[in-house]
Simulated scan of single mutants.
Amino acid sequence: MRSFRFNLEEIESATQYFAPGNLLGKSVFSAIHKGMLRDGTVVAIKSIIKSSCKSEEAEFLKGLNVLTSLRHENLVRLRGFCCSKGRGECFLIYDFVPNGNLLRYLDMKDGDHVLDWSTRASIINGIAKGIEYLHGSKINKPALVHQNISVKNVQLDQRFKPLLSDSGLHQLLTKDTVFSSLKASAAMGYLAPEYATTGRFTQKSDIYAFGVLVFQIISGKRKFASAARFAAESCTFIDFIDPNLHERFCELEAAKFAKVALMCTHESPDQRPSIEEVVQELCSPLC
């Protein structure tokens, strides 16, 4: 892990000492600044307050080891980290993703930058492949549950390729911090219904959140109403496909996405498909 370690001086220099103009976003336990490394690479630096991180050093380092092992074209790449006792913060240095997160492209007004249908289809397929990588087990890479799949955690690069962010981040955080971040997920409808009784995240709870995400992408809306869900079940496209597309979409593909989203958001986790089955369904010919 030594090759992934940055020092505080590099972090301060990259962010111009955390200049307010470089602040990209903030939450209760973290902040993200845009920065530039000495070699000219543009990065996003997430600072996490130490009290939100696991106090047991061995557990924290184990989590960092997992994060640095993740490599996939649909995940935001972690370049390194820096832990500063003096500032009481841990810094995670990620590749900067220029087009922001998917939330920016929902609830758009006609005439704004509306994502076309092929871009939406590509985003859905890319997210599914990123989740498939996380859920899979490989040498030096355990099977992982993302736990916080949402439009905020789907970043879009210069070609609008989707990259999942915060993958494995819960491995570094205290249980209280992870739990407090659930409020936003619950408000957006990402939390699988079984969580209320089990209090556990599983691959099937990731699948549920992915299904909600698919509904959001094809409808262009943050909130997917129950009436729109009924429309998806009957493939009444006019009632659940983003009207900003002005009917410029593939009906067969829309029906496939609706089917996938409905399967993924089934009330019973046992009835939801695995991510491998989802990817297989998405890759099947439209015929």
Rank of each mutant, 00 (worst) to 15 (best):
H170D: 10
S167I: 00
K223S: 12
S165A: 13
T197L: 08
G199Y: 08
F160C: 03
R229K: 09
G189S: 08
T174V: 08
T198K: 01
F230D: 08
T202C: 04
A184G: 06
K221E: 07
I217F: 08
A225C: 06
T177S: 14
E194C: 13
T174K: 01
S219D: 14
I149Y: 09
Q155V: 03
E194I: 09
F215W: 03
P193A: 06
G199N: 06
F237H: 12
A231D: 13
K221S: 07
A232C: 09
C235Y: 15
A196D: 07
L163K: 12
G220D: 01
L173V: 02
A184L: 12
V212T: 11
Q216H: 10
P162Y: 15
A187M: 09
L182D: 00
L172F: 05
A225S: 11
A231Q: 12
F201C: 04
D176A: 13
C235T: 08
Y190I: 06
L182Q: 03
A225K: 10
I149T: 10
E194T: 09
F201V: 02
T197R: 07
S165W: 01
G220A: 06
Y190G: 06
A192M: 03
Q216P: 04
L182K: 10
A232T: 12
H170M: 05
G168Y: 03
L182F: 09
K152G: 15
L191K: 02
S180L: 12
F237W: 07
A228R: 08
L173S: 06
K152A: 07
G220Y: 04
Y208L: 04
S234T: 12
S226T: 14
L191Q: 03
L169V: 10
V214Q: 11
A187P: 00
K152Q: 12
F215L: 07
P193L: 05
K204C: 00
A209K: 01
I218P: 05
C235Q: 10
L172Q: 00
Q203N: 12
